[in-house]
Design a protein around this nucleic acid. Structure first.
Lengths: 136, 136
DNA sequence: GCAGAACTACGATGGTCCTCGTACATCGGA
DNA sequence: TCCGATGTACGAGGACCATCGTAGTTCTGC
């Protein structure tokens, strides 16, 4: 919960979104942002896109409000940048900032996510299956 | 919240602690476990120790109950192993399992944590400086 | 100006998490 | 056997989070 600098220059419409400065990005916040399945999938899509993409290309199993919330969390925690572009809002990973602050972190997490998904696809969907819960 | 296998063989005293199997370790859970400052510091100490160490060597600014809670979270999320050794309980990182599931993740996070601490020591403590939080 | 599209803000709800104090269990040793 | 040390379990309180629906704002195009 870093005090995101609400860079609202004029008092009017908040057409400029607040982003934390690079030095204000905290590792715990980034990890927390990445710890949510929905947000992690967003980051994965963004990483594959290799550029900007609007909010509406994501098909997460949540409502639009919730998606907005997750985007905001990602932005306020320094994981992505968001800019208005007409009626759409473009999202992009802060690859440079993150790579500079925490070298390799983003790539490692993304690789781990892909790896886990690949393993999960072959291991069956029932997440409870692996639990074993050995009945004595 | 993975269904940790409650491996309680005999109905009596739970002298054997439940650990998730390697395949049951989820990336989101590991990230969540690492997203807490207290737990991250625990993991850092454990990483520096390069082996087992008891619960009582940590001087986190929390009560003993809370520390126990964090250790349990780390264990149930697959980050550490815990074994009884007399009155003490030894903790150790699951380096192998994590390295196998998510190559480089642990080392990257640990390096990021060290990096952030080093930067934070020179940047001063006043985190609220960048905040501004301009009330519209 | 007006309709539609894209997105946000707000409030509410239910759940999870962090923290703690207190009481209890286990082990080693006197 | 009894005591101290180590650590757990339980319950509670307060904060935070994820989710949603609804209403509102901003921009584009006719």
């Amino acid at each position: 919960m870093p005090p995101v600098a609400t860079t609202t220059p004029t008092g009017g419409g908040p057409r400029v979104l607040a982003h934390p400065s690079r030095d204000a990005i905290r590792l715990e916040d980034v990890l927390h942002a990445l710890a949510d399945p929905v947000r992690l999938s967003i980051v994965r899509v963004l990483a594959d896109a290799e550029g900007e993409c609007s909010c509406s290309v994501f098909d997460a199993p949540v409502s639009k409000s919730t998606l907005t919330h997750h985007f905001r969390v990602l932005r306020e925690h320094g994981v992505i940048t968001q800019t208005y572009r007409g009626t759409a809002k473009m999202n992009a990973l802060r690859r440079e900032d993150l790579a500079d602050l925490f070298p390799g972190l983003l790539d490692t997490v993304l690789a781990a996510a892909r790896r886990q998904e690949a393993a999960g696809l072959s291991a069956g969907a029932g997440a409870a299956a692996a639990g074993a819960t050995s009945p004595s």
